[in-house]
Design a protein around this nucleic acid. Sequence first.
DNA 1: TGCCCACTGGGCAAACTTGCACGATGGGAA
DNA 2: TTCCCATCGTGCAAGTTTGCCCAGTGGGCA
Lengths: 183, 183
Amino acid sequence: MDTGLRERKKTATRMALHEAAVRLALEHGPDRVTVESIADAAEVSRRTFSNYFAGKEEAIFYGDLVRLRRLLELVREQPGDEPPRAVLTTAAERLLAESDRLDPAWVAQRRLLRGHPSLAAHQVAAYAAMERDLTAELADRGLSGLRARVLAATFLAALRAATQHWLEHPDRGLAEWVAEALA
Amino acid sequence: MDTGLRERKKTATRMALHEAAVRLALEHGPDRVTVESIADAAEVSRRTFSNYFAGKEEAIFYGDLVRLRRLLELVREQPGDEPPRAVLTTAAERLLAESDRLDPAWVAQRRLLRGHPSLAAHQVAAYAAMERDLTAELADRGLSGLRARVLAATFLAALRAATQHWLEHPDRGLAEWVAEALA
DNA sequence: TGCCCACTGGGCAAACTTGCACGATGGGAA
DNA sequence: TTCCCATCGTGCAAGTTTGCCCAGTGGGCA
C-alpha cells in the first residue's frame, strides 16, 4: 500500500465514482443513468470519469472486480504445496469470512443488476479475465494446462452459481451454498 | 460567480484550509500549529497550502479578508450621489445584517487570536490594504485625497474598535456598538 | 559560542483534472 | 427514410496538485 496522498486520492475518486454509479443505477435503473450524472454525483468532471473507467458498466462492476482480485490474492498467498482444490476452497472461505456481506443494499443491487443484458456482458467479461489469471496461478502450482483451465473454470462457475442461488434463496447463508457448490 | 467545477473546487480548497487553520489554532494555540498539520487536516499537500496562502497567519485571517472584501462590495454597489458617510454606515449595517454572527465559535476565535503578536500584525496589514481600496473608492465619489483617506481610516478604526469592545462587553449586540462608534 | 533540528517558502517536473472540441453512435420524430 | 439530438469516447491544451528538492531561519542544547 502506498500511503501517499496522491495514491489515496485516486483510490477515493475511483470509489466515489463506483459508489455513485451503483447508487444511481439502483435509483433510476441502469440505462437511465448517464456518465455525466455519475461524474456530477462524484464531484468530478465527465472527462475524469473516462480517466478511471471505460464506461458506466465498468464503474458499476468495479466492486466485483475488487472482490475477484482479492480472491486471487487469497489464492496466491497460500503455500505452494497445498492441494489445488483445497487452495481454492480455502480462499473462497476466507473471502466470505472477511466480507460479511449481509448488507441489504448489496443484495438489492445484485438483484437489480442480475439479468440486465448490457450489464451481464460486463460481469461475464470480469469473470473471464479472472479465469485467465486463476488458470495461470494453478499452472504455477504444477497442474497441467488443461487441468488448471478446467479447475479454474469450474471453481468460478460454482462460485457464481452459489451466489446466484443465494440471491433467490436467502434462507441459508451464502457461505453454506458456496460450500455445497464446491463439494 | 463562475459555476465551473474547477472554480468551485478551488474555493472549497481555500475554505477547507482556512477552516482547518482556525480550528487547529484554537485547539493547540496559534504558534503550536504547523503548516503541515493544517494541510493534512484539509486533505491537501503542504505544497498546495503554499499555492493558496503565504503563511498560516494569512490562512487564519482569510475569513476577515472575505468580510472586508464584502464590506467594500457593499460600499461600491451604492449610488454615487449618496453622502460618503451615509454610504459607509449603510454598508456597515448591511454587513452586520447579512452575517448574524452570534456564532460562539467565532467569538471564541477572536478572543483567542486577539492580542497575539504575530497574528495582530497580519490583521493590521489586512485592514491597511482595505484602507487603501476604501480610500480609492471614496475618492471616486468626489472626496479630496485627504478627506477620503481620513474618512476611510476613521471608519475602519471605528469598526475595529467596536468589534473589540463587543468582544469584552457582549451584553449589547455588535450592531449597537458599531452604530455608536460610527456616530 | 557553535551545532542540530524542526519548520518554512518556493523552484521544478511529473502526475492528475478540467474544459473544450470533434466525430461516432443510436433512438425517436418528421 | 432522413434528420435531430443526447450521449459517449477521446485528443489536446491549460490549470492544479503533488512530491522532492534545497536554502534560509530560529529555538534549544552542549
